[in-house]
Design a protein around this nucleic acid. Structure first.
Lengths: 244, 244
DNA sequence: TTATTATTGTATCATTATGTTACAATAATA
DNA sequence: TATTATTGTAACATAATGATACAATAATAA
């Protein structure tokens, strides 16, 4: 899989890829009451960036997004949604990419395909934090979770892409049942509420939240969870539905 | 403006355009209780298609969408929204395009840029039917409104693009105030309700609809409209708001 | 001029959804 | 066995929406 990058650098015309088209994925996770995104750093540069990639000539763009997602998290069958395509001409800034390549000892001609203007299709993914295993590759030093509230400086317009992704899931949360994708298979009502509160960035009323969630009829009560606290044990729930 | 097409055909490598990237616009209008979309036919082929175009090298994709929209309708300051990017590899079908070009007496090599695989960014526009003047150009025979309920056979996946656009405005209609863009400056409550009913494809309750619309506080009552009917005259309203 | 007709604007009440408070149930601990 | 904190849910209050009813009023006909 890591040949992918060598292939991208070496063949200066980008044969085998759709020209000028990139995919960036905002991979959301949730842990300890914090919404997180997966970021990587490019080797020896300290640049933080969203996991992304390019589309093969014989590949649907959605397939490409899944491939990239799998590559970073090791996960298949993930909730993945295209949310916006970014194509301002101001995105075209070759400096960071040149540095990234230089740090690998590669000094491309100015007409190298990777230095041309790219339009990027944004996808967001919702993954179970406990199942996803971030994996760096030959081109990146690290690939790790960052709190959404405490992001490092990001390459290009990646900050903006994340903001737009967040905005999208905030809107989607109300009318699609997507929240569950961020939790482990079993969860308490309190955990689910905490997730909603974090995404929407506001407090919700406990009684009303529970009533509403149960009214959807997609939660199956599994067992009790004895947390060790001196109080009633919460139930564990699991998401059930034809659609996931 | 019509040189645009000659430029696209003649220069076989597509210099000046972003390669492999197209824009398709679903331009919605509303007239006589029918939702309409603007379609064009390519000269001497009878192919129906969405108005579309390509992105200039020095242009934001949103600018490109506005340029295409202006070119077709003569309108600026139109409500325009990107809704999805279509990039299945199955879209790549050179046959129709070859016929279109052949009908113009142009027979491109197989490696002509227009025959390569394209990813298309979909935009939808909401326009005042009474203001938009559909205009064909050198490459198209006609450019006309078609009822959404009675579309002709369309090129490639344009049917699917329209379906996705419709789905998007149905969802947007609830939480954005976008409906007004499809009506003339002044309209009655009945006309507004008819518009909503057509888009959502269901009957709404008159009293509740009126109460809700007025509660938004974005409607200014202008005057009465004497229709000639033997009944109370409805008020004319106008949309007022900082955001349009 | 006045009755008739169809449609509009809105009040009224019914129903449903949501906000809010309260309290019994219950694990762990003292 | 009492205490504590938290959960699940009942109960009530308020707000939003569904449904019906009716007065207001342009045009037309008597």
């Amino acid at each position: 899989m890591d040949q992918e990058f060598k292939k991208q650098e070496t063949n200066s015309t980008g044969t085998g890829y759709l020209p000028g088209l990139a995919i960036d994925t905002v991979i959301f996770g949730f842990h300890e009451s914090e919404l997180k995104v997966l970021l990587l750093t490019y080797k020896n540069t300290g640049f933080f960036a969203l996991p992304g990639g390019f589309v093969h000539e014989d590949e649907d763009i959605n397939q490409a997004a899944r491939r990239i997602l799998f590559h970073r998290t090791g996960l298949k069958d993930i909730y993945l949604e295209q949310f916006y395509t970014f194509g301002d001409k101001s995105r075209h800034d070759t400096a960071p990419l040149k540095k990234i390549m230089a740090a690998r000892g590669f000094f491309p001609e100015d007409n190298h395909w990777l230095l041309s203007r790219f339009v990027s299709i944004g996808y967001y993914a919702l993954v179970d934090f406990t199942k996803a295993i971030p994996s760096p590759d030959s081109i990146s030093d690290s690939c790790d979770w960052f709190n959404l509230t405490d992001l490092p400086g990001l390459m290009q317009d990646h900050q903006h892409i994340i903001a737009k992704a967040l905005q999208t899931i905030q809107l989607d949360l109300d009318h699609k049942l997507i929240g569950f994708n961020l939790l482990p298979e079993h969860f308490t009502m309190g955990e689910l509420q905490g997730l909603y509160e974090t995404i929407l960035n506001k407090k919700l009323l406990r009684a009303a939240f529970q009533r509403k969630m149960l009214s959807f009829g997609v939660l199956e009560r599994i067992a009790k969870k004895w947390t060790g606290g001196a109080h009633k044990a919460p139930y564990l729930y699991k998401f059930i539905s034809g659609s996931k």
